[in-house]
Amino acid sequence: MSAETLRSALFWVFATLSLSLAWSVVGNRRLLRAAVALMGVLGCSAAFYALLGFGFLAGIQILVYVGGIVVLLVFLVMLTRTQALLEDEPTPWRHKVGVVAAVGFFVVNLWALASLPDAAVQGPVLGGDTRAIGRALLDAGPQGYVLPFEAVSVLLLAALVGGIAVARKVDVAALPPAEANHG
């Protein structure tokens, strides 16, 4: 079994796993299970990155996405749990709209992408991308990404501050009068 064959086999395994878990993300009636399934989908995506030769990306995916963002989402699911929404089952009408939109998008997308010539993964598998990505991110030249990098850092800071500002519980009535004026 060559490396190519192994890679191909792994791809199909993870693709199948990813799609079935994704189905669970959008279809499972219990939201907590959907969140856990999302964790799985993101894990499979990490495997995809690895298969494509981006080891660094795979690591980031696990660390940040699975370990950070999804955990946040799980918290969110727990924080906003209501009896009425315990079972999230779409009505037939919504289901139909969703299916039409999703299938329509899928068909149009494939139709558009089908014209691209096929290609296969070449070059080394795993490793070697960390240095290149780091250079690209901090390169101020015409091929570099330092400006988007800084922009994203500002975005993250803004999101952080905004998140705190929005979620902070402001009870005006409970504040002392002097402070209420400033608040």
Binding site: A101, F105, V108, N109, W111, S115
Partner: peptide, 16 residues
């Protein structure tokens, strides 16, 4: 969102 996606699909289709 459904309407927006319909629009996206249409535009992509047209472009293609």
């Amino acid at each position: 969102a459904a309407w927006a996606l319909t629009g996206v699909a249409l535009v992509v289709g047209l472009l293609w």
